[in-house]
Design a protein around this nucleic acid. Structure first.
Length: 403
RNA sequence: GCGUCGAUGGUAGAGUGGUCAAAUACGACACGCUGUAAACGUGUUGCCUUCGGGCUUCGGGGGUUCGAAUCCCUCUCGACGCACCA
């Protein structure tokens, strides 16, 4: 994407910016559009609390939105929430957090975040994104400052939040620390004096708190733009904090595979949120007939963005050969093994499997396949006698070189 | 501060002296059917095993007992109630 100078195209871009992959705009889309049409450049930001070290496909939605703003010449701030991270965002948490993060942990994670984000947004070159840390101002607030911020909110306002209501009903705790979170996030807007805040729709409440503060403390109208959350029918699969997260740093092949294994209902959202394919074209998609092809296409586009054209092609080819044509993948991890060694021990030792129990389970379930002989290994005491190519489950392959 | 209750496997959540490696659900893994989709069906889901069994787990530490996830003491953490309105 390049900054388009042509006026008409800019108009389209503005339209796209305001509609595509946008959940809601507060106070209204019209107001924001009016300002953008006037040619005014805005200062905006999105915050990320570095409470894990892996960014996933869901974050990519926000990053792409950043990129759009960036390309239109606006000032974009990538805010690392090393201050808010200490409070613990209660968003989506049915229970109070057990663990709160320290400044050190947060700073360390933040480093990884930036590396990962740089795959999508520009931190260098033309109109680069600025990086800021909210710990820089939040940690300096003194009691009076905090009281002053708090004065602009009522308990009723804060407690109205759905998730707090749910917790109240369920008799779950609401930690005051979490309760204050929206205020801190809200103060970020004031500290940076932004015109707009960008974030996932789950962040609406927190972002609106910033709107309130901005109005009272600066007399300024802050816009809020929310992006939809990416998910498939199982809901949280894509952004899940544990398990099969689709990480932005996943290797091309893995990334491709993980996207392919998502539900069909994620295809259109992925095209909308993660690609530049025009909305007109997306509307014409025939999900029923082309689900497979479309999913491959979107997987490929995503891999190109996070890696490159070549690895995307390789990933797709490998996928198609391995899983559709059932061929043995060209590139298999090769490990040397001793003749006479128990295969179970060998696999555990090389961390292909986590325990011998797992091995026994897999053998029993018929999941260990000897590709050289094209038959399952059913003997748990199988010993290595010669070179061996194994398929474990659906996706794990190992080649053992006996010597 | 006082009082009451609670802390169980990846998660939720049973269990309240032996029949508990711990119900059930979800998740995960595997197999079948498929499009590495969904739905559905089946199996597995602490570790080791000569497949007899053994070993380590129920917040930490200590104790009672032939025997503890279960009882007692203590520590840590948490929830709730009371303490204000006289």
């Amino acid at each position: 994407m390049k900054v388009v100078k042509n006026k008409e195209k800019t108009e389209d871009k503005i339209n796209e910016l305001l509609t595509r992959g946008v959940d809601k705009i507060y106070p209204s889309r019209e107001k924001l559009e009016e300002i953008l049409r006037s040619g005014k450049k805005l200062r905006l930001y999105q915050g990320f609390d570095p409470t894990g070290n892996k960014l996933h496909l869901g974050h990519m939605v926000g990053f792409r939105k950043h990129r759009q703003w960036q390309d239109l010449g606006h000032e974009v701030i990538f805010l690392i929430g090393d201050g808010t991270g200490q409070a613990g965002d209660p968003t989506g948490k049915k229970k109070t957090r057990e663990k709160f993060f320290t400044q050190e942990e947060l700073r360390a994670n933040a480093k990884d975040y930036l590396i990962q984000a740089s795959k999508i947004v520009r931190f260098n070159g033309e109109n680069p994104i600025k990086i800021m840390y909210n710990g820089d101002w939040l940690n300096k607030l003194n009691l009076v400052d905090i009281l002053y911020i708090a004065q602009h909110f009522s308990v009723q306002q804060l407690i109205e939040r759905d998730m707090f209501q749910e917790r109240l009903k369920a008799g779950e705790t609401i930690n005051v620390r979490e309760f204050l979170y929206p205020l801190l996030q809200g103060y970020d807007s004031v500290a940076m004096d932004v015109d707009l805040e960008l974030g996932g729709s789950d962040q609406t409440f927190n972002m609106l708190a910033g709107r309130t503060l901005m109005k009272t403390m600066k007399g300024k109208e802050k816009f809020v733009m929310t992006t939809p959350l990416l998910s498939d029918s199982k809901g949280v699969k894509i952004g899940k904090s544990e398990g099969n997260v689709i990480g932005l740093t996943d290797p091309a092949g893995e990334l491709f595979g993980k996207i392919m294994s998502l539900g069909d209902d994620a295809i259109i959202p992925m095209f909308t949120l993660l690609t530049d394919v025009s909305m007109k074209e997306i509307e014409k998609f025939n999900l029923k007939n082309d689900a497979m092809a479309l999913k491959k296409r979107v997987a490929s586009i995503v891999v190109i963005q996070l890696h490159n054209q070549t690895s995307a092609e390789q990933a797709e080819e490998a996928f198609s050969n391995t899983f559709q044509k059932k061929e043995i993948p060209k590139v298999i991890k090769e490990i040397k093994g001793d003749i006479g060694e128990l295969l179970s021990e060998f696999l555990v030792k090389n961390e292909i499997l986590s325990s011998k129990s797992e091995w026994r389970r897999l053998v029993l379930g018929g999941a260990i396949h000897d590709l050289s002989k094209n038959e399952n290994i059913t003997d748990a005491d199988f010993k290595i006698s010669k070179d061996l190519t194994l398929k474990i489950g659906k996706k794990r392959f190992v080649k053992i070189l006996a010597n």
